[in-house]
Amino acid sequence: MDEARRDRDEEGRARNARPRDGLGRPLPYGAEGVERQPEGVVRSPEETVREAQRLLDAGMPFHAHEVFEDAWKSGPDAERELWRGLAQMAVGLTHAARGNAAGGARLLRRGAAAVEAFGRPAPYGIGVGPLAGWARELAGRVEAAGRPGGGGVVDAAAEAPRLRPGPREDGH
């Protein structure tokens, strides 16, 4: 394939067909990547939370962000900031895991502010307060790690947040 050309979908829209790694980074054509999340999937809020948590637990926050993005684009206007804030936190974790401390911290904090502004009670069982606290705490650690001698990137799976308070659904 001519890599100077843009990949296009069936309707002619630009779509990058390069495989991606678990953190969403493009790989060379022909490389083994992880399965990408289909775009534009309309899920129930329950399905969105379950799928995003599965991806976060697997260390794939970029892919979780795509699930949240579908919810923010297809859901009711009243819930857009919730899903957008969750997507921003997932992208913040992605950047932190890729070693972009400044971008990661900024997006983690932006996402925390968005979900907190959404209010209470916690929609769909999502722990808005604990999630915002997780994001701000991680943002501080990411910034410290990004300073000279700070230690580098974070492990996306180890840092995965709990979207709902309580034990993981897989029993761990």
Score class of each variant (00 low, 15 high):
residue 87 A to C: 12
residue 158 A to H: 00
residue 70 D to I: 06
residue 148 P to E: 03
residue 138 L to T: 04
residue 160 A to S: 11
residue 68 F to I: 09
residue 128 V to A: 05
residue 162 R to D: 03
residue 139 A to V: 13
residue 145 A to N: 13
residue 74 S to L: 14
residue 139 A to K: 07
residue 99 G to K: 02
residue 85 G to M: 00
residue 84 R to G: 14
residue 79 E to C: 12
residue 125 G to V: 07
residue 160 A to C: 01
residue 114 A to G: 11
residue 85 G to H: 12
residue 105 A to Q: 06
residue 127 G to P: 12
residue 70 D to E: 10
residue 66 E to M: 06
residue 77 D to F: 15
residue 102 A to Q: 13
residue 71 A to S: 08
residue 68 F to E: 01
residue 131 L to S: 08
residue 110 R to L: 15
residue 67 V to P: 11
residue 161 P to E: 00
residue 124 Y to H: 13
residue 81 E to Q: 15
residue 95 H to C: 12
residue 153 V to C: 14
residue 71 A to H: 03
residue 164 R to H: 01
residue 113 A to I: 06
residue 126 I to Y: 05
residue 70 D to S: 00
residue 116 E to Y: 05
residue 108 L to Y: 03
residue 61 P to T: 05
residue 112 A to H: 03
residue 109 R to A: 10
residue 80 R to H: 15
residue 139 A to D: 02
residue 68 F to T: 02
residue 76 P to F: 13
residue 135 A to Y: 10
residue 124 Y to E: 14
residue 137 E to F: 12
residue 122 A to I: 10
residue 83 W to N: 04
residue 104 G to I: 00
residue 148 P to T: 11
residue 148 P to H: 05
residue 98 R to K: 06
residue 148 P to W: 09
residue 54 R to M: 09
residue 90 A to I: 07
residue 90 A to D: 05
residue 159 E to I: 08
residue 135 A to N: 00
residue 144 A to G: 11
residue 122 A to N: 15
residue 155 D to C: 02
residue 135 A to I: 00
residue 143 E to P: 03
residue 76 P to Q: 15
residue 82 L to R: 08
residue 108 L to H: 03
residue 109 R to G: 04
residue 98 R to Y: 02
residue 96 A to G: 01
residue 145 A to P: 02
residue 112 A to L: 03
